[in-house]
């Protein structure tokens, strides 16, 4: 993921544009509610997502038999769209909300600190990692933004809503670094996911 990144000096205009993209994205996430299935489905955090396979396998000498399995991709609608739809606890939601307020007020540093606290409480919640990636863009740390978004993607375990958002952050981060080609690639990735979602 990080290999071959082109690093260049940050252009303020680009960073601002990147921040706008990310901010628009996050606010969009925050205002979109209402997936009827989401409440009945164990939600965000890799732990609660439907496992692709029963954990652990059979190993020689271990004795148990598990029939071979094929991975069926879960229906995209089962994924939580926002952190509010997810199983995040009240402490994390409260910190996340405060972080959003801080970000909206232009205080990215404070937002970063609040999200750090949230991440310590639910360290594998991909929404938090995504929000940190967004604040890293605000803080003009494009490299960090991309790596946090990538980590969020890993933890999202196929949640297309999170992945689309992360690819947009990655696009903005690359754009901020002057990597137009890489930005375009990431944006295409985001658009493809968005298209698949709207077709679903």
């Amino acid at each position: 993921m990080s290999t071959g990144k082109t690093r260049s000096k940050l252009a303020p205009g680009r960073v601002a544009a990147a921040a706008l993209v990310a901010a628009a994205l996050l606010s969009a996430c925050a205002t979109e509610h209402g997936l009827s299935e989401s409440s009945s489905v164990p939600a965000a955090g890799a732990a609660e997502l439907p496992p692709a396979m029963a954990p652990g396998g059979v190993i020689p000498g271990a004795g148990t038999l598990i029939p071979p399995n094929t991975v069926t991709p879960p229906i995209s609608k089962n994924y939580p769209k926002t952190i509010q739809d997810s199983s995040a606890g009240p402490a994390v939601l409260s910190l996340y909300r405060k972080a959003q307020d801080a970000r909206a007020a232009g205080n990215a540093e404070q937002a970063d600190e609040l999200l750090e606290r949230a991440r310590r409480i639910e360290s594998h919640n991909p929404f938090i990692w995504q929000a940190i990636a967004g604040t890293k863009l605000d803080l003009h740390q494009a490299d960090q933004a991309e790596d946090f978004a990538a980590r969020s993607n890993d933890l999202a375990r196929g949640n297309p809503y999170i992945e689309a958002g992360n690819w947009r952050i990655i696009a903005a981060a690359r754009q901020a670094r002057g990597d137009t080609g890489g930005a375009l690639q990431a944006q295409t990735q985001a658009d493809n996911i968005a298209r698949a979602l709207s077709a679903d």
């Binding site: 890799a46 997502l49 496992p51 692709a52 396979m53 029963a54 954990p55 652990g56 396998g57 059979v58 190993i59 020689p60 038999l65 598990i66 029939p67 071979p68 399995n69 991975v71 890993d154 375990r157 196929g158």
Partner: peptide, 29 residues
């Protein structure tokens, strides 16, 4: 233990190391 996107979990016959299905007695995932 949730595999990342570029990883697939398969049932394997431990004797041959090849893919297994219901026909095999012992399977390693």
């Amino acid at each position: 233990p949730l595999p990342p996107a570029d990883v697939a979990e398969l049932g394997i016959d431990p004797v041959s190391g090849l893919r297994a299905d219901e026909g095999c007695g012992e399977i390693v995932v």
